[in-house]
Design a protein around this nucleic acid. Structure first.
Ligand code: FES
Ligand code: FES
Lengths: 141, 141
DNA sequence: TAGATACTTGACTATTTTAGTCAGGTTTAT
DNA sequence: ATAAACCTGACTAAAATAGTCAAGTATCTA
């Protein structure tokens, strides 16, 4: 089970942004340099974040991105959702009545994985961008 | 973030085994048929489980595998550990002093991912094979 | 003691996913 | 005008996953 770079970068970039005043746009170039993430890759990621209205773009020189909501209102869940970083523990299709074995009943471990998925998603539901910025600044002191 | 089939199958197979008396060995062929998992793949998985002493093998006709410990004492953590299903959320090497960005400090989100990893591992530490068998039989009533 | 059952081992491979790259745009401040 | 920065879609190398395959060895039973 591992976290992909796309998800990790999305959060990393947004924490980077959230540390500023949220008035002046932050350019991807700057984020790229500060965080060591490929600019082209960041562009893909921010395109998704924009579509899900997590950030707003400002085009042209001096442009960049700004947060579209208060940092407190942006949860990890929202970010992961935007970039298609999903937690997937079961093998079967959840809606389907069939199990991962193709049989008519769910497999022996289906409920376990479902629990696990909830357990992980709870974590993501609780953490906001604000928490992350705070955490980080507090630790620097 | 997703769970791999190897990990899922390992647990599935062990739950299947744990439902029996633990005296007569259970053959992989039976598990394969009951759970719809490739026999060859199961063999790879059980080879690892045996090396980590989660199961014991009985060769020859009527052979198979038996649990090597009480179901209560086998935690998900042990199983995942045995089959190399590891939770990996950070990108950097944990022991290293360097961050994932190659810089001398850990990145902005390192602590977050570390927390996440603990959160997930807690779940695995708590669940035992016994719990899973119980859960399952209780739900059948 | 022959044959069947079942574990044992190691190498090999197709498929999928990931983590980007690349090439071309468009918009806007100065 | 020109440069900074966003925007878009297609493409690709590398890694991981999910197996398969082949050739054993051990043990029970008839
Ligand atoms: S994971 Fe849902 S049926 Fe097996
Ligand atoms: S994940 Fe550890 S430094 Fe970024």
């Amino acid at each position: 089970m591992k976290l992909t770079s796309k998800g990790r970068y999305a959060v990393m970039a947004l924490v980077d942004m959230a540390r500023f005043d949220n008035i002046n746009p932050v350019s991807l170039r700057d984020i790229s340099l500060r965080q060591g993430i490929s600019l082209d890759y960041l562009e893909q990621i921010f395109s998704k974040l924009r579509k899900k209205e997590i950030v707003q773009s400002v085009r042209g020189t001096q442009g960049g991105y700004v947060l579209n909501k208060k940092a407190r209102e942006i949860k990890l869940t929202n970010i992961f959702d935007a970039v298609d970083e999903k937690v997937k523990t079961v093998q079967c299709k959840k809606e389907s009545k069939k199990g991962c074995n193709g049989k008519a009943t769910k497999c022996l471990t289906h409920n376990l994985w479902d629990e696990l998925e909830n357990h992980i998603n709870n974590f993501f539901d609780q953490k906001s961008l604000e928490d992350l910025v705070k955490d980080n600044s507090e630790r620097r002191i």
